[in-house]
């Protein structure tokens, strides 16, 4: 059961990784690509990591529980660092004078 749940979650995560990646390719300018990259950082990571965390709990021991907790911590940390990094990049773009793409 746990395996299936985690399977679904991981698959979802991979799907969002795909979405984000494709967005990174397709979108026209740097700023909007960054929006797509945000998906990788958030949804993709969140889903796949929670899937893995659940998978880690397949056999419930203290060690496994701590492992799952650590995996969640990774998500927490990435949720802290991800936006910061994104913000840093955007900020750099603005300071470097990169103009956003505008609809004609």
């Amino acid at each position: 059961m746990i395996v299936y749940i985690s399977g679904i979650l991981i698959a979802g995560g991979l799907f969002f990784f795909l979405v984000g990646s494709i967005g990174m390719i397709r979108l026209p300018d740097f700023y909007s690509r960054l929006q797509a990259a945000g998906i990788i950082d958030t949804m993709g990571l969140l889903l796949s990591m929670s899937g893995l965390a659940i998978l880690a709990l397949n056999e419930f021991t203290l060690g496994n529980f701590l492992s799952a907790l650590k995996i969640i911590f990774i998500v927490v940390f990435v949720f802290l660092t991800g936006p910061t990094a994104t913000h840093a990049i955007v900020d750099a773009g603005i300071r470097a004078g990169l103009k956003p793409w505008q609809k004609k």
Binding site: Q35, G38, I39, L80, T84, T86, H87, I94
Partner: peptide, 16 residues
């Protein structure tokens, strides 16, 4: 607030 905005795909905080 700013990080929340950035976290939600579709919006990014540029300046704060």
């Amino acid at each position: 607030f700013a990080n929340s905005i950035t976290l939600t795909p579709g919006t990014i905080t540029v300046v704060l």
